[in-house]
Amino acid sequence: MLKFLSVRLTTSLVALLGVMVMVFFLARLTGSPAALYLPVDATDAMVEAFNRQNGLDQPLLVQFTNFVSNALRFDFGQSIAQQRPASVAALSAMPQTILLAAISMGLTLLLAIPLGTFAALRPNSAIDRAITTFSLFVASIPDFWFALVCVLVFSVNLGWLPTSGQGSLLSWILPVATVMLHPVGVITQVVRGAMLETLNAGYVQNARARGYSWKRLAFRHALRNAALPIITIAGDRAGGMVNGAVIVSAVFAWPGIGQVLVDAVYNRDFAVIQAGVFVVGIAVILLNILVDLIYAVADPRIRIS
């Protein structure tokens, strides 16, 4: 297990390095920060001074080696726009992001697992068709459209919920609902498919021949065996949630890492873009390792091999 984890960690870090290289050069394709921060009539001397101050006067390759050597010490440089270390700007947004992702994924599983299970218990029944239709429907709605319509109905017309930002508990409802939308639909379908298979497996029929209730058959005997595909898809979707949930930041001005990254790109704040991508990358790597550990807990055949 330990060997497996160290291999997993090494390959993940190689992938992260590749991502960081790409981000470094792509960020610089957005244009020069000087053009953004200095007045239109700035003199060449002013531009030169600005570039020197932010380390942008050196050749690209020198900038890159500086970036890599500093990043290895977790120094991502200063934010031009925010006048504070880029790493602080990125990290300060992570608690909001992770909390939103955790709440959304928790509620998604609470909804999708019972729905998928009930659909699988009675294949092709009215309940199954209703649940399948619902899950395909929510998985197909464009989430930005859903978010905007929700704001229009619940915030603007009815005035029940705030339109944006993060304050009271009420301000969490629409962002959470938007982030959950697609995962609920997709995971319900995965649960249904996996449960259809395990409910018909020999060990569930055998357990039925021992006189157990349908609840015990479904939730103890079939669901645990259906866990692997469910964990896989849930881990994938959770990665998407940690990854910034850009829709939420765009529509609800949610102060998460998505918002930080979008602002940094608009501001040509290279240091913050790099720090933000790095932090998200680490979060996704940790999430993948967590998923591997959950696999091992769920299935003894993975644990004892």
């Binding site: 497996a201 020999g202 060990y203 569930v204 029929q205 055998n206 357990a207 039925r208 021949a209 021992r210 006189g211 005997h221 645990r224 065996n225 866990a227 769920a298 299935d299 003894p300 055949r301």
Partner: peptide
């Protein structure tokens, strides 16, 4: 099922829950 009639199936690997 159980105290009245019990059953043993052909495929013993599939008959036991792997987890």
């Amino acid at each position: 099922r159980g105290p009245g009639i019990a059953m043993v199936f052909q495929d013993s690997l599939d008959a036991l829950n792997p987890v």
